[in-house]
Amino acid sequence: MLISPFKLKRLGMLGMNCRNRDFIGRYNDRRLYPLVDNKLKTKLLAEEYQVATPQLRFTIREQHQISHVGNLLKSLKGFAIKPAKGSGGKGIWVITGRDGDDFVKSSGAIITLEDIRRHLSNTLAGLYSLGGANDEVLIEDLIEFDDCFKDFSFEGVPDIRIVVFRGFPVMAMLRLATRASDGKANLHQGAVGVGIDLATGRSLNAVQYGRPVYQHPDTKRDLSDINIADWHGMLMLASRCYDMTGLGYIGADIVLDANRGPELLELNARPGLAIQVANGRGLLPRLRHVEALKEKQFPDALSRVNYVQERFAAETLL
């Protein structure tokens, strides 16, 4: 069954055409895209602006470095391999432990050093980058996720997507990996999307495959129990990404590390629209509201976060 376009309009749902033309096209300067399309650049920029990110161990830029990778990985127990130019989580391998000389992936699969080398080689050749351009690889520390997410995720780290428009966080969603999503946090692969109230960090609404859910499908925990720790800090982190990149319409992917607090995983200059389904409401009214605000009255991240926490507070929770 299809939904009528008039109803979508009434709900304020943002469509892809409208997003591309009225927001991405108008507020995102193409010149600035490399800052977010390349995770290494994002990371260096984040250090400059003192925005927390996962600890970088080392990078691989040339094919010949791959032969030494065995030595470099020796000291690491768990780590994440990320292509600098990958998009949508493509090419990210999370190694959670060791099995003798071999490595254990987050899915539980055992892989050899040779597998890792091949993956690195493919990545450098541009398998995961747009248009097959030469790529770089980041090796980062693993996230130890916070206790407030205990039993809310099946394998994989839960991450929080916050859409930031002109520095104002306008909508947030928690993405929980499931067995169906194979430990990945992509909604169309079966991850659970939980809309998060901007004022409190508590859950608003949850969906899997576009249908409402109330419990995590694998762990059976009630999704209404979600209460994200340090929510204000997380919004601050997201809001500062605007000052950092200058991009008007971005999606910030943030994780909550048990020891280090909120950390920026990556930025996306073309954030998807599924966040609206997870929240059960459209982005458009909030975007239009923020569009009409005068920038001078909100000089820093704190004023913007305070404004949205008051203005966009939800009336009912899950």
Binding site: L2, I3, P5, M13, G15, D22, G280
Partner: peptide, 14 residues
Amino acid sequence: TGYKLSELYRFQSM
């Protein structure tokens, strides 16, 4: 900038 036909299906849960 209107909705795509596919979005009427995609957002049906709304």
